[in-house]
Amino acid sequence: MTEFLAYAVERYTYWAYVALMLIGFYAMIAHGNLLKKLIGMNIFQTAIILFFLSISAKRGATLPIIPPEAGELVVAPPHFMNPLPHALMLTAIVVMVGTLGVALAVLIKIHRTYRTFEEDVILRQT
């Protein structure tokens, strides 16, 4: 039992990612309000980005910025964080903003036609 507890505490960050993802997923599929669905989508996306970024963390390492005086010296990789997830997730954030902008534009269009954000009211009108 204590073994399991120590194990669970050691991986506490994963619990937070799973909780955030589930909150976002729940809002996306259970909420009837379209704006709330978008809020859920935003939470879901940031949870995935958080998971990727946590992979790049290394105990006792510093930011992946090489001091210029390092020059020709060989840089020791364990002293710097993994830069690849950072670069990938910068791209992901840009895509996140793109999808959010288009989704909100569609939402305004929907509201123009149906005068509501509620899914069931829209379905009844069609």
Partner: peptide
């Protein structure tokens, strides 16, 4: 969490950390 010997930190990224500054001249590897 923050294990320096995780597979993601051992496989590809050390090459970029080691040669990135020399090859591109940008101190920030990201």
């Amino acid at each position: 969490w923050s294990d320096p010997a995780s597979p993601a930190s051992l496989h590809v990224s050390p090459r970029y950390l080691r040669d990135g500054y020399r090859e591109t001249g940008a101190p920030n590897i990201v």
